[in-house]
Amino acid sequence: MRADEPALRIRSLRKSFTLHLRGGVRLDALRGVDLDLFPAECVVLRGPSGAGKSTLMRCVYGNYAADSGSIRVAHDGSTVELVGAAPRQVHALRRGTLGYVSQFLRVIPRVSAIDIVAEPLLARGVAPADACKRAASLLERLNIPARLFDLPPATFSGGEQQRVNIAHVFIARYPILLLDEPTASLDEANRAVVIDLIQEARRDGAAILAILHDATAREALATRIFELAPRLAEVA
């Protein structure tokens, strides 16, 4: 990826939700967003609750389907249009390019912390022993005790689950990172570790889009702030 070309180019992005079970009420979440995100920058989304920060992030990850507009993603030496992309294309983007730290870890019964973290490497064909070694060293850095590695995180504390979630994404060195409150439920020491991880990724050239309510993290990481206007009235 070239540093002078955006990793992500968003144009006129619109997203609404039609609630059929509520008499067809339509909520306009995004009304024409334009944003460029370049390698080695960390753009922090700002706006009041309900302004569409998480919605924008989920649209970029393909988790929400945008109504219209364009999201062009630099992927594998070319650019790919994400709006309207086929599911297989979205999977390819997620495997190689887009890393997303959601607010909560979705735990899978019986799958251990270390396997969750190693999974993105296995999906790319890294040998299992190597993937596990790298997963263990990242979990160690995030202060997850080694005795927890082989346990499924369902019983972990909120902060521990979040760190597993962060390790699961940061292990794969994605060129684009989408971070939704990555430091929300962490104590000070662990917050510092996560801030370092994010900072390192950015210096290595990752393009980062983040939601950070925590002022310490925001001041340490943001290279630019992007304002999202509050949502206008609902249309019936």
Partner: peptide
């Protein structure tokens, strides 16, 4: 039809919304 997490997190058809909810 669509990507699994898209369909479950952002269901469009009234019937899918009913199933998910």
């Amino acid at each position: 039809g669509g990507l699994t997490d898209r369909l479950l997190d952002d269901p469009h058809h009234p019937y899918t919304q009913l199933l998910v909810s």
